[in-house]
Each structure stands twice: as structure tokens, then as C-alpha cells.
Amino acid sequence: MENIARIAAIVLVFGASIVIVAARWVNAGGKVEIHATMPEKGGWLPDNITTQVNEPLNLRLISDDVVHGFAIGQSDLEPVDIHPGKPKDITLTFDQPGSYTFYCTRWCGANHWRMRGTITVEGDTSTTVSDEATSPLYLDLSIDLDAPHDLPELNLERVPSTELGQKLGIDPPARYLSREYYLSHTPNQAWGDLRSESFSENLNDSQVWELVALVWSAATTNQLLNVGQELYNQNCAACHGAQGRGDGVFALDASDSPELDSMGNDAVQPPDFNDPRQMYGASPALLQGKIIRGGMGTGMPSWGQILSEDQSWALTNFLWTFSIQDHKE
């Protein structure tokens, strides 16, 4: 009897340990594990993955602290939430070789946006569909993103309103309503152009501003603005503030220590998007350029690898809702 008990005891003590350790290996089989932790503690681990074109890539996404999310930049893949301690398995297949950015989609601290990694997809590049990346508009227009564009002298009686513009009963000529005009002009330039038109002779300065509001609103749709708003809330509001005032929770963090943020970046209080003096000297092309390039020596991330071009324009359109009344119906 004693011997049976001894054998059972040995089997139990070592068996339990061996089974668990073995299960660990079996469990991990065939999957690439990506651990997510807050950026201060390491972010994505690993943050660089290589795979082959048209081969399924089995990922196991694991959060070791708080809620994170996983998405691939510029793709249609729905973002996946990664809940702490609850691995999420996904399979990705890339049909184009290249370098893809994956990023965290749930805010996980002030440095959340630094949680980015790269999936390198290797394969025969000759199969690549010719998809020449178009150069950003701000480069084509030779806009210097880092030059100051605020208009401290700008004096408005009231914030321009699209609705009041419509009541003027004036339809701006077609050249103002073209997409090219909207993208490449600042509201201030548009006001100058409209002021010198003969149809605005009887309008006061404020009324001309309403015409600018009209032109800006004509360049977008409510549907696009909704897309832009969603992107803004998810990605921008934490710093720029839900109302665009530059008072998001992490911006306030930045103002506590004006010189460097917790990871060594210059931290600058974001501008107030509601202030026409900040906004009316900027063209949509400039704003979109800032979004996709980022940098500026501030904490502003670059979104070029993340947002599709359409998304970046939708977001740009949305930014005007803060400084133009009734921009969105």
C-alpha cells in the first residue's frame, strides 16, 4: 500500500508540473505570439514580424496589462480588442508584399500612439500591382508644414456660420466650389478672393466670412464628417480634446511638464481648433499634411501609415466643424 501511495505521490508532483509545462509548448504551436503592454513597459513584443505573401499568418495577441487593440494601418481589417489575460487569435493573409504597420487601437496611456509595429511581407515583387504611392498634396503644393500659419491679427465679429451664409442667397461661383480650390486655399485666402468679387460688394466683412463657411461646407458631406468625427474621437480627442480645445487628458499631462513628456518628447499644448486665428491661416492640404506626417517637434504622431487617404481627408474636413458654425448639419 505504501508503495502505491509513493508512486502516486511522485506521479502527482512531477506529473502536474510536466503536464503544465508541456501544455504550454503544445498550446503555443504554430502561432506567432505578440504580447501587448503599455508603451512604457515595452509596447508590442515583438514589434517586427516577417511573413510570406499569400501565406496565412496566425497571430495570438496577448495583453499583459490593460485593454489594447490591434489593427493594420490603411487596411479594411476591423480593429480587434485585446483584453487583459485573454488571448485573441487572428489569421491574416497578405496578398501584396510590402511593409505593413500594425498599431494599438485602444488608448493605453499617454504614449499609446507609440504602440506600432511592422509586418514585413516578403514575396515576389514582380506580382505587385502597380500602385504608385501618390505624393502627399502638401508636397506638391510646396507647403512648409512647420512655418507658423496662425493669424494673430484676424478680427472676426462672430464665428462664421454656414446657415447664415445660405441665407445670403448667393451661390459662390463654381471655381470656389471645386475640390482643388478648397484643398489648396486657406479660409483667409478664400475670404480675400471672395471680398474682391463684384457680387460681394454689398456684403459686410462678416457676411463674406459666411460665404467662406458656405464654400467650406460645400466641400464635404455629413457622411464624411461622421467618418471624420469617429476617427477624431478615437485617435485625436485624448490630446486635442473632445471639443477641439487642445485640452484632452494627455495634453494636460503635457502642460504639467512643459519641456519633455514621459518618453522624452517635446510636449506642447495642442492648439485650439475653435480659434479662427489658429485655423483660418491653414489650408486643408496643410492640415492633412500635418496629420499624415506628424512630428512638428511636438507629441503629434504621424498618421500616414495608419489612415487611408480618404480617412485623412474626412478627418481634415471634420476639423473645420470646430471653427465654422453649422459646418455639420
Binding site: 504550454r24 496577448i62 496589462d65 487583459p84 489575460g85 485573454k86
Partner: peptide, 8 residues
């Protein structure tokens, strides 16, 4: 060996 997340 398990997750560092206590409640899981």
C-alpha cells in the same frame, strides 16, 4: 508561467 493579469 501564466498571464501576469491577476484576475485571469
Amino acid at each position: 508561467l501564466g498571464t501576469p493579469v491577476g484576475n485571469r
